[in-house]
Amino acid sequence: MSWKPLRVLTPRSILPALAVLLVLLAGAAAHANKPVPFGDRVAEPGGADASPVTAQSLDTAGLELKVGPGLEAYDPATGEHAWSYRREGATALYLAMAGEDAVVLWDDGLVTSVRPSDHEVRWHRAVPGLAEWLRGEGETGAAQRSETQRKQLAVERAAIALYTVPEASPWVAVVTPGLTMGFRDADGDLRYNDRPAGNCAYDPVRTVRTNYAVLVPRTCTGSGSNNHQAFGGITGYRLDSTNWQLATGPAVAMRALDGQRVQIEDGPVLGSRVFDTKAAAPESACGSRTEVFAAVRPQGTCAEPVANPGP
């Protein structure tokens, strides 16, 4: 039986293997140090050093959620920190619940959906122009605002920009003067992306949410088509049906009566009306000629008409 002696390892024969090993180690190190998308960081119990940005607090899934520099979760019975979710270089400004999920609006214009039960980050979506509007960039007097005033402005605007709608499947709306967007919470899918006409702007301050829709008013200047003065209107957004348009005056005001109906006050000429956001139709007024034939009749009972006492 013949045998071959073991190959003697020389520096020349080792170099290729070392080169391959170094490449693999460099790749592994680069992967380990790869920046986390969107700067996401989840800290386990004891990792909170939050100083709340707002006094906002919500109870869900057996947790108390607070907006600190990120999303902070605490045991409501003991006050013990459960976990925190942060994003590098960003501050959470406002929180709203969409079904079982917590939706967070950040100062860099990002919107994030988080599942509190297992602190899973479900999706991120960027809203163009949101960060600039939150900071008030380009507005009259913006340069004179202090850092504290800019932060306070961002918190106030975040609270009127983010809306969640529970029916029929939870979804999220973001409203700014120049853009409104709607996302399905189940997967973050963009369902609409709407900008006002060139001479109009949306008004987040007057925007109203019900359990079925978000109603966004707009104010217009100048003239519209046919040289008629453009006053404004209201757009109603839903994900399970087409949107609708309501013509209004320039100073229309809205108020949610319940989870379905909205009171619309439109000045002395157009008057007051009730809109049903579930039926996507106006509610007929008590005693009106159209009440019998109305698609949406008044809820509850109407007062009995007062008999004419005569002369």
Rank of each mutant, 00 (worst) to 15 (best):
G47N: 10
V175K: 12
A158F: 09
D189C: 06
A173V: 03
E72M: 09
A30H: 07
W106F: 14
L153N: 01
V252L: 03
N33E: 11
S113W: 06
A307C: 07
P11N: 01
A159P: 02
A161N: 02
M181F: 04
V175M: 12
G141N: 10
P196F: 12
G79L: 10
T221D: 07
A28E: 12
G232T: 04
T210D: 02
V36R: 08
V104P: 09
P5L: 09
L215T: 07
G62F: 13
R238P: 03
T301S: 13
N243M: 12
S57F: 00
S51Q: 15
P305R: 03
A285C: 00
A186K: 13
D59C: 01
S117K: 09
V292M: 10
K66Y: 01
S223N: 13
E139M: 00
L162E: 00
V172K: 05
C286E: 12
L134W: 02
I14A: 15
W3C: 03
L134H: 08
G109N: 10
A28S: 14
A61E: 14
A201W: 13
L95E: 01
S146P: 00
V111K: 09
A154G: 06
A73C: 04
E283T: 15
L24R: 10
R261P: 15
F293G: 00
T242D: 08
P268G: 08
E80Q: 13
G198C: 06
V42S: 08
A102L: 08
P309Q: 10
V165G: 06
E64W: 00
V205E: 10
E304P: 02
R7A: 09
A43Q: 12
